[in-house]
Amino acid sequence: MAMPMRRTLVALHRATCSSLKSGEASLDVRHPVPLFLPVRTKKRYFIPPAVNLKEKKRGNPEAKAKAAGIVFRQEYTERPINIACSAGIFDPYIPPEGDARLSSLSKEGLKQRTEQMKQSAASQLAIRKIKDHDSHFTSKNFAEQAQEIFIEAHNCLALFDKQKLHSLVTERCYPEMTRGNRYKTIRWRFIESLEPPKVVHARCPDMVSKGNLYGQVTVRMHSKQTLAIYDRFGRLMLGSEEQPKDVLEYLVIERHLVNPYGRWRLHGKIVPSWAPAKTQLLR
């Protein structure tokens, strides 16, 4: 009779110990019991795709949104408009083939002279319009002024004086002059003029509205220059500082004539089709 009672007491003791251990485990701070259960209250009709999804095909988010009833807003690519200068060259001057090499006394040289005289009628009308807004404009003095603008702009480009360069070139010409020159060293020098600069072309068209005039004057400049371009390690990429070259250029100078505070600035260059190809930079 004593043995069954003892076994019963041992079983009760074991059951009590196991219940106490389970209670301690439930009160353990390292493994807290969640006090709330997540409840889904609202259904999401459109779920965006995961970021950096690998080895899985991404669906078209626009098509999924359209199927869910959500309409994407149409995106417009807007281009900024600058009224301080025009976006191009109006009626560009076509240089005669063999310019600066043919004599005016030869047969072909005389043909070029007669064609230039025929084309000068439109230029004279444009010069009259320019003089109505700029009383100090003269063809002879303007050619020398354009040459000074050209020399000063290229000196600022070699010294990376961006603030002054903006006042000498238009917003269209600035990126064309500075593109790709960030890590390069430019050594440029103007030596002399082989021929005096002269005005060969002029246009004064309306833009956007009548009376909004932009004056564009093309100046022919034949000079001797030196140019050397070095990379960021000091290695020569193009040209030479000691060997000068004869350069024939057609500069386009522009001004917003309606603006009383406007000034003549370098707008671009005209490269004839018969000109030799540019020398590629050494890399």
Rank of each mutant, 00 (worst) to 15 (best):
F137P: 09
Q116I: 00
P92L: 04
E108G: 12
D132Q: 15
T114F: 13
D132F: 10
A143F: 02
E144V: 02
E97P: 05
P95K: 12
S120F: 09
A143V: 03
P92S: 05
T138E: 05
D132M: 15
E108P: 07
F160D: 10
Q163C: 12
F142R: 04
Q163Y: 10
Q124Y: 06
I127L: 15
L125P: 00
H154V: 01
K107R: 11
A100N: 14
P95T: 11
L157F: 06
L110M: 15
I127G: 02
L125W: 05
S104I: 02
H136A: 12
G98T: 08
I89R: 02
K107W: 07
Q163K: 15
E97N: 09
K107V: 10
A158W: 01
L105C: 06
A122Q: 03
D161C: 07
R128D: 13
D91C: 11
I149S: 03
E148H: 09
N141Y: 00
T114Q: 13
E115C: 13
E144S: 04
D99R: 14
R128F: 11
M117F: 02
K129C: 08
H136L: 08
L165N: 07
K131F: 01
I94Y: 06
K164M: 14
K129Q: 14
K107G: 03
S139L: 08
S106P: 08
N141P: 00
A153C: 07
Y93L: 01
Q112G: 13
D99P: 00
D132T: 13
Q147R: 06
Y93F: 13
H133S: 14
F150L: 10
S106D: 15
G98P: 10
R101H: 06
I127W: 04
Q124R: 12
